[in-house]
Nucleic acid binder design. Structure first.
Lengths: 212, 212, 212, 212
DNA sequence: AATGAATGAGCCTTCATTCAT
DNA sequence: GATGAATGAAGGCTCATTCAT
């Protein structure tokens, strides 16, 4: 359990994890090859099995949702208007999903897993998606009030996550439909603002309907 | 020299296509194996290459978006209130994506392709996604009015598609979060209604903002 | 044993044989595919087995050495100087092997078989090569006289055949070494003349050595 | 970390190369199978791709013309009468082509390639055939003198190579025509002597004709 | 008689994994 | 502890051949 950065072993492990995150996020779990990951990490093909037992083990380890949790906690602690906190969450979440310069590859892998489940999905659901749903559920409850039904609230959570994730899923499609489009910080902010406005209007409508 | 639908050849082709759609929608293009497809279709491994030239060719042929097009046209012909037409579209689209008894596997494969592009993505974009975007774009234009900007309108299209597709993408996740949940016709209708309400409220907000 | 040209069956057979000769001479026996032969012959894939039993059977039938025999006989009947007859033989043989407009594909296939034997080699040796050796042997005997030993004479036969066949075998190589070179009638005649001069000088030397 | 010739890796590579040379020389490139080569080399089917990347790569590596080059150099250094050097060359070349106890399989594969080109032909022409032609061309120039035309000289090169290679190409045929014939050292020497005598007589005739 | 469809053995290659050092 | 080599199962595909009509 040594976590000193300097150990040669630790460095190799870290290089493997980074390489794996890159490969998994680009080619998916099946599409990524152990050989290519090791080539990127500048180590030998046996290293993955040596350090992580198997390709599956590497994936499980590569999925470190620390950034996602940090984001949630930061938002959760904030003692602000829930609508503002939702806006902040959406913006941060979109940055995680779309910003190329951002290192939060695990979230992209998670996004992929939704459409292409692997043995690691259980871990992902447990450690990332369930907390995410819970977090968003509580936040929306604050916004929508107590009258809104549980099922309806959950659907609102889905509506928000669906909108956000779509921008990641549909990336290859958007490149074909609008080749000029680039997701720089400005565009991401605009998209996040749209989703927030769109969703808050949706939630308000749902909650008012429930209040009647 | 019979050309009725019951020709032995046609039957084999159809069995292969159905088996392929099942496999592709379940395991993705890479994950699906020609051998398993042929086993399901009760034919031999060479049949795929004989009838479709290659695994790629089989995928291309398996993607028959006739149901999707039919749905759009049906909606397009309707001379009704655009909001009603949007509600109908969402309900039909959700049925396509979620109804297990419905044979519209191509749409599910399409949904997968978003996250895991294959050589067939160009065809999919051309024949299904682009028309879908165009159709939804026109419909939303009617609802949102002329004042709404092109980019904003497109984001509304994304918001709707994102919500719909999420229910398909997140199926494996939902099964883990809420094991009891089943997407029967009633549940699908409820989800569709939610998405329509949520989205119409969102669109109205966006269009009012633009009108200012 | 009908040999009328008009029968549909006969026409198909003939088209298959011609197509097979083309393919075999270009790609060898292994390299040639039944499918491509049938495509050329504008018939279906089962035709080869139907008409000839197997790919082997087609090869056996495609090897019709009538032209080669005709050439030998013509030379054999001639009541001329043996050296002249050797010159004529070499010229005709080279034309058979190299002239693109000449239809004597069987000889080219035979040339291939030397380096890439197939089950048809027995037939080729029996029907074409053995008679050729015998013919050349008799002709050289006339030129070299009785003193020359049997083994030496046979080696002269080899020397002549080797020179001739080399121009066919080495075609792909020559195209790389001298891309501009073309074997038109003029070039073929020059080559044939060279081989004849070269060989006659060789034979004369051998026979004189034997006479001592 | 041993780098002696006995390294396990080196041994496997060498076993694969030897097995490949055997198979290629017997069945040609197309006819040879990776499985059989690996069976001979007592390794598994993946070894070829691991060590040589592909079947093509194995062929390229199997073609090591070191013996051929060594032979040429040895002759080139000799400060003797050009006719003697031609005799020596022919004898050595024939030994390479025919001596069963000789390990110079690459030359036999090369001989095959003449009639059945593979992707490796370019390499063969570049590394073996072109140097061979050049070497022989220079040698014959010394013998034939300056008067002889370039085209005529090249045809003399062809005449010699054709005679030599014929004994390799026609091996399967000779076995059928003269089952008792064996190419032992004595027979090879006799053949080489014949070719040398035959060819020198031919060259002399050609050069005298040119001198007129 | 003649054909389009179907067959299964076999091809080369790729892969994650394990072994021997 | 860490590695290059070796493994064998499985992949898609091609082929000559046979089947059912």
């Amino acid at each position: 359990m040594m976590h000193e950065a300097g150990t040669a072993t630790e460095q190799t492990r870290e290089r493997l994890l980074n390489a794996a995150r890159e490969e998994f996020s680009q080619h998916g779990f099946q599409g990524a090859t152990v050989r290519e990951i090791c080539r990127r990490a500048e180590t030998n093909v046996a290293a993955v099995n040596y350090h992580f037992g198997s390709k599956d083990g590497l994936l499980a380890e590569a999925l470190n949702f620390a950034p996602l949790k940090a984001m949630q906690l930061a938002n959760g602690k904030a003692d602000e208007d829930p609508e503002v906190r939702l806006r902040l969450f959406i913006r941060d979440f979109m940055l995680m999903l779309l910003d190329e310069t951002n290192g939060s590859l695990p979230c992209r892998i998670m996004a992929r897993e939704l459409a292409d489940p692997t043995p690691a999905l259980d871990k992902i659901v447990r450690e990332a998606i369930a907390p995410l749903h819970e977090f968003l559920g509580k936040l929306l409850r604050e916004i929508a009030g107590e009258k809104t039904g549980e099922a309806e609230l959950r659907r609102c959570v889905h509506s928000i996550l669906g909108q956000c994730l779509y921008y990641r899923h549909s990336h290859p499609v958007q490149q074909r439909l609008h080749p000029k489009l680039r997701y720089d910080h400005k565009e991401i902010a605009a998209v996040a603002k749209h989703i927030a406005n769109f969703s808050l209007a949706g939630i308000n409508f749902i909650s008012k309907s429930a209040a009647k």
